[in-house]
């Protein structure tokens, strides 16, 4: 038998976990995409050496598990004298992780913009920074927006792992509740549904933002 009603008394625990997960997601999505944008720009337009540095970063992150990255930052860095709280370590790990994945995605967007756009901006007298922010970025992001959205959702779901360094996120809440009432299935099932809700919400938020950013597609 399943007893979902047994969970009700723990709604505070779940809500506080949900809050942590949402906060971290919002923060790291913004920071991660920002980092990814910078790295993608360097990778696409930078000099040979800086391109190399970014490539190494991107490949290192993309080819190792997030949980190992998290442990490295949380347990490993203090050994070098960098003390981090679980929350700080998680934020850094998530940002670095999303940064690498989004760098690869955004770079594909930048590469898809024709050289003519760059030249048109140049002959109008725009400097490089103006050209990027005013001319290149929006059409580039439009090209890869669905992929970027999916990646941000993947990273949000991956954040469940931060419960392992005792950040009190949604997964931590689920573990706590099931250890109290021994209703593991119900507890994890409900939590999984909450993550599903978050995925849908995040996609919804991205779509709403996209509608504003790329209004030129739908305008008449």
């Amino acid at each position: 038998m399943l007893y979902f009603s047994d969970l009700l008394q723990y709604s505070d625990v779940f809500l506080s976990g949900l809050k942590t997960t949402v906060e971290l997601t919002v923060l790291t999505t913004i920071l991660g995409v920002a980092l990814g944008t910078v790295c993608a720009t360097v990778r696409q337009y930078g000099n040979r050496a800086s391109q190399r540095v970014v490539s190494v970063y991107v490949e290192l992150i993309r080819n190792t598990p997030f949980i190992v990255q998290l442990f490295f930052i949380f347990f490993g860095l203090p050994a070098l004298g960098m003390m981090l709280s679980p929350w700080q370590a998680s934020m850094i790990a998530l940002t670095i992780n999303l940064g690498a994945y989004s760098a690869e995605i955004i770079r594909a967007g930048l590469a898809s913009i024709s050289k003519g756009q760059m030249e048109a901006a140049k002959v109008l007298g725009l400097n490089f920074r103006q050209t990027l922010t005013r001319v290149i970025f929006i059409p580039a992001f439009e090209k890869i927006y669905p992929a970027l959205t999916s990646q941000c959702i993947i990273v949000m779901l991956g954040s469940a792992v931060i419960s392992q360094i005792s950040v009190q996120d949604l997964t931590y809440a689920a573990n706590l509740v099931q250890s109290r009432n021994f209703r593991a299935f119900e507890s994890y099932f409900v939590t999984a549904l909450m993550y599903l809700g978050l995925s849908i919400l995040l996609r919804f938020a991205f779509n709403a933002l996209g509608k504003r950013l790329f209004a030129y597609r739908t305008a008449n």
């Binding site: 024709s114 003519g116 756009q117 030249e119 048109a120 901006a121 002959v123 005013r134 001319v135 929006i138 059409p139 439009e142 790329f214 030129y216």
Partner: peptide, 12 residues
């Protein structure tokens, strides 16, 4: 000023 074969207007 320069004008290109492919216009190169900014689509957004």
């Amino acid at each position: 000023g320069m004008i290109f074969q492919n216009f190169n207007l900014f689509p957004h």
